[in-house]
Design a protein around this nucleic acid. Structure first.
Lengths: 131, 131
DNA sequence: CGTCTTATTGATAATGATTGTCAACATCAG
DNA sequence: CTGATGTTGACAATCATTATCAATAAGACG
């Protein structure tokens, strides 16, 4: 049976409060800073449960860390991510969905899934780097 | 000054001999099995040099390992990868390039880069899983 | 061919994210 | 309230990757 604990709630709402992709470590630090005493392992577990349940998106940073972000459940979407500050915009990619399916089929591949993410500098970071 | 060593040559040709993405560890094991005494650290170094020089593509597996594959230098391309056996097909994605640029611009993002990879089951693995 | 400079190697230690362990604890049905 | 058991959290363990550093070898030069 699945139980509801304040820890899982805390992780969920801490993730909701983020506008950018964050690592488990960062989220753990944030929670601690907010006065929430929670174990690191628990944050890892809560995040991977959330991701498995579709309540969060995850991706790997260039350095290999796992990053998480709250998302609308059930929606398949992709991301436009600032490589400097991490700010994220959800984007739709109907075109790309179609393209991925057809290219897979062309080559005889089945059960296609795809990883599509766009990295760049957000307006703010662009301004900063220009100044 | 950059020196030519048999170790780097060995890594390069071992990578060329692979039709799938492989990890540094796997490549090291392969080399050892072939009777080539080479250090693990050297394989790591050779692979990241190769990738930096454009002689190899790299991506992160779902488990977070770095995987490498020989590729045509200078060509920007994406991959269709079998999630079971790792076989890889290089694909072009002119559409997607354009789309990535325009979506980034729309949101005020600059210097767009993108990660686009399609995973699926190759014809062989599809047949196997069906049988 | 020898010699010298220094890039490279490789065994091993160190790092750092993530996962496993397991006793103590909290949740929820009854 | 109480008991069965899912969950927590401190810490150890794991695993890929990187740093360390003495020993080695590539290549320029004579």
């Amino acid at each position: 049976m699945k139980r509801n604990t304040w820890q899982r709630e805390a992780v969920k709402s801490a993730l909701d409060a983020q506008e950018a992709f964050v690592s488990a470590q960062q989220l753990h630090a944030t929670l601690r800073d907010d006065g929430t005493a929670i174990g690191l392992a628990t944050v890892y577990r809560a995040l991977s449960d959330l991701a498995a349940a579709g309540g969060a998106d995850s991706l790997q940073s260039a350095e290999g860390e796992a990053l998480y972000r709250a998302c609308t459940p059930g929606q398949h979407h992709h991301h436009l991510i600032c490589r400097n500050c991490g700010v994220t915009v959800e984007i739709e990619a109907t075109h790309v969905e179609q393209w991925a399916k057809s290219i897979a089929t062309e080559h005889g591949f089945t059960q296609p899934e795809h990883v599509v993410d766009v990295f760049g500098l957000c307006p703010e970071c662009t301004a900063l780097s220009a100044g």
